[in-house]
Nucleic acid binder design. Structure first.
Length: 95
DNA sequence: TGTCTGACGACCG
DNA sequence: ACGGTCGCCAGAC
């Protein structure tokens, strides 16, 4: 099992600064994950202590089950959604 | 082993 | 812009 990958994904998500967002795909690419799904999997089981709300789908929309909560947390950081969708060109984090 | 299931994404019409 | 489809890959059963 790859504990290393798990840690890299965690570190990347942890490093996304308040007021900006990233996507599952970006995190996967940066961490060298085989699929963006792995990022979602990691967050679902070990993401409570991470700024998981800063991770969106490539469309700029949050995953279905957490939409409300996520948009709420983002709004508190000044990341505003237009009809449920975040403008990635505006808020996307690029290290 | 074979199938199904996701906090996903690229492509296409 | 949207929805359908297909590829993806580790786990659960």
């Amino acid at each position: 099992m790859d504990e290393e990958l798990h840690e890299r994904m965690r570190e990347i998500v942890a490093s996304v600064p308040p007021g900006s967002v990233t996507t599952y795909g970006d995190v996967a690419a940066m961490a060298g994950a085989p699929s963006p799904r792995m990022v979602g999997k990691m967050l679902s089981e070990d993401g409570l202590d991470l700024p998981w709300h800063r991770v969106l789908r490539a469309s700029g929309r949050p995953a279905e089950h957490i939409v409300h909560r996520q948009l709420e947390l983002l709004r508190a950081e000044g990341v505003l959604a237009d009809d449920g969708r975040i403008n990635l060109r505006k808020y996307r984090w690029k290290p």
